[in-house]
Simulated scan of single mutants.
Amino acid sequence: MIDPKKIDLPDFLVTWYGAPTTSATPLPDSCDWLPDPLKEWHTLTSRWEKRITFTTTMIPPERIKIAEDGKAIFMVDATGDWRWCIDPDDPDGVFDAERYEPWDRNPEQLTEFLVHNTVREVVYGAAVRLRALAVPEETLTEILAPMEHVAFGAWEWPAPGYRIHMGGAVLAETVKAESGPGWDVEVVTSEFHRVAHLERMTEVHWRRQAA
C-alpha cells in the first residue's frame, strides 16, 4: 500500500505531463491569507501550460473569497454541484458538500487532499485510457497485480468506495459495479505499450477512451 505522503507531487507531474514549460507564476499579495499547501499547489502547477484538472476546477487563488459562513470555496466539480472549501480558522482542514447541503469535514488534511485530487484527475486526462465494466474479483486482482493501492482517504464524491492504484506510469481507478457483481475499472497511462497486455485478456471487454 502506498502512503500518500510518499508521493512527490513535482515528480508525479513530470511523469504524467513532462518537464515544466515555464517559470512559476508568483501569487499576488492578496493571496497571503490562503493556507500554504494551497498556495504551493497553485505555484507548482503554474509551471505547466497543460491542463491539470478535468473533472474539477480549481478557483484562481485571487478569486477565493470568505463567505458569510466563514468558509472559502477553492474547488468545484465540473457541474458546479459539489464544492470544497477551506476555513481560515482551521487551515489544515478541507470541507465538502453538495450544493445546498451542510459542509462535512473531508477525511484528508489539505496537503493530502491536493495530492489526491491531482492524482485522480490524471485518470480522466491521460492520453491512453482503458475502461471495463463488471470485472470479476479474480480478474481485477490480475489487472492490479503490478500496482499498489494508494491509501487516500475515502471521498463521497464522485462515488463512495472508489480506490486508486499506482504502478510506475500506470494508474487505475476501481469502484464496485453500479449493478450486479464485479468492479468497474479504468486503467490509464501516457504510452499504450505499458497496458497493451490488458487488451489480450479475453475475459475482459476493454474500451479505449480518448482524453
Rank of each mutant, 00 (worst) to 15 (best):
D36N: 06
S30E: 15
G180P: 12
A19Y: 02
V14E: 10
L140V: 11
R51L: 13
E142P: 00
P88E: 07
I73N: 05
P136Q: 14
G167I: 06
R51F: 00
T141Q: 15
G80Q: 13
F192H: 07
C31S: 09
L140R: 14
L44D: 08
W16P: 01
P158D: 13
G70A: 09
S46I: 11
T53N: 07
V188Q: 11
I59K: 02
A134I: 08
G18Q: 13
M201P: 03
T189V: 11
V188F: 09
V94W: 03
V135A: 07
Y124G: 03
L114C: 06
F54Y: 15
M147F: 02
F74V: 10
W48M: 07
T15Q: 14
G182L: 09
R207V: 12
R47W: 00
P102G: 11
W82P: 02
M75I: 00
D92Q: 15
D36M: 05
P107L: 10
I143R: 01
D3V: 08
D77R: 05
V128C: 11
T56W: 01
A78F: 11
G125V: 12
K71S: 04
A134D: 14
G182H: 08
A67S: 13
D81S: 13
T21L: 02
V204R: 04
R51D: 12
M75G: 00
T79G: 09
R120F: 08
P4R: 06
Y100F: 15
E148G: 00
E142Q: 15
K5G: 06
V94H: 03
A172K: 02
D8G: 01
R131K: 15
E191D: 13
I66H: 05
F152S: 01
I66W: 06
I86V: 15
G182I: 10
P102D: 12
A169R: 02
E203N: 10
V119T: 08
C85M: 13
S23L: 08
K50S: 04
E137P: 00
W82S: 01
H149R: 13
R63F: 03
D32P: 00
S190A: 15
D36L: 13
W206Y: 08
Y124Q: 06
G153D: 03
H205R: 14
I73D: 08
S30W: 03
A159E: 12
L144F: 03
W16A: 01
P91W: 03
I2Q: 05
A211S: 15
D89W: 07
I143F: 07
D29L: 12
D90W: 02
P91N: 10
C31D: 07
E199S: 03
R47V: 00
T57F: 14
T174E: 05
T43F: 01
Y100A: 13
W157K: 09
V170P: 07
